[in-house]
Simulated scan of single mutants.
Amino acid sequence: MIVISERVHPIALEMLSSYEIYYDPDLYSQRGALLRVLSRARGLIVRNKTQVDAELLAHAPHLKVVGRLGVGLDNIQTDLLSAQGIQLIVPRGANAVSVAEYVLGMLIAFQRHLLALTQQVRQGGWIRDMSGLEIDGRTLAVIGYGATGQAVAQRAQAFHMRLRVYDPFAQVPQTWATSTLEEVLDGADVVSLHVPLTAKTFHLLNEKTLAILPHHATVINTARGELIDESQLLAALTKKQLGGAILDVREVEPPKASDELLGLANVWCTPHIAGLTEDSQIAIARYVAQGLIGVLG
Rank of each mutant, 00 (worst) to 15 (best):
G125C: 05
A96C: 08
L115F: 11
L88A: 02
D136A: 13
Y102T: 11
A153P: 14
T148E: 05
T139R: 10
Q123C: 13
G124F: 09
A109N: 09
V121T: 15
S98H: 05
R92A: 08
G137Q: 06
P168G: 07
M161I: 12
A94K: 05
I89Q: 05
M130C: 10
R128C: 13
V103N: 08
A100H: 03
G144K: 03
Q84A: 08
P168Y: 06
Q123W: 08
L104E: 02
Q84T: 00
R122P: 14
Q150A: 12
H113Q: 13
G125K: 09
A109K: 07
Q87P: 02
A156P: 12
L107N: 01
E134N: 15
Q119P: 13
M161D: 08
D167C: 05
L117K: 13
I135P: 08
E134V: 10
A158G: 11
V165S: 03
V103A: 13
I143N: 02
L88W: 03
G146I: 08
A170F: 10
W126Y: 14
R92C: 07
T118W: 09
A170I: 09
L115A: 12
T139L: 11
D136Y: 07
W126S: 12
Y166T: 08
L107Q: 02
Q154I: 02
V99I: 13
L117C: 12
V142L: 03
L115K: 14
Q87Y: 00
Y102L: 00
S131E: 01
R138K: 15
T139I: 15
D129Y: 14
L114H: 05
L163S: 10
P91Y: 02
Q157S: 10
A170L: 07
Q154Y: 04
G105V: 08
G146V: 11
A153E: 04
W126K: 14
A151F: 04
F110D: 06
F110R: 03
G93K: 05
L104V: 12
A156H: 07
G149R: 09
V90K: 01
P91T: 05
P91C: 04
D129K: 07
I89F: 02
R122Q: 15
R128F: 15
V90W: 00
I127K: 14
A170Q: 12
I127F: 14
A153L: 04
Q84M: 04
V103Q: 07
D129F: 11
A147H: 14
G93I: 12
S131A: 12
G85R: 00
Q123T: 11
F169H: 11
V90G: 01
A100T: 01
R164W: 04
G137C: 07
D136F: 12
I143V: 15
A109D: 07
V90M: 01
R92P: 00
G124K: 08
R155A: 04
A141Y: 01
Q111C: 15
V97I: 14
Q87D: 06
G124M: 10
Y102E: 05
W126L: 15
A151C: 11
R128P: 09
Q157A: 12
P91M: 00
T139C: 14
N95L: 09
G149Q: 10
V99C: 11
G105C: 02
G125P: 00
A141K: 01
H113K: 14
A100Y: 00
V152Q: 03
D167Q: 09
T118S: 10
R92G: 08
R138I: 07
A100Q: 02
G85Q: 02
T148Y: 01
V121A: 06
G137Y: 05
V97W: 00
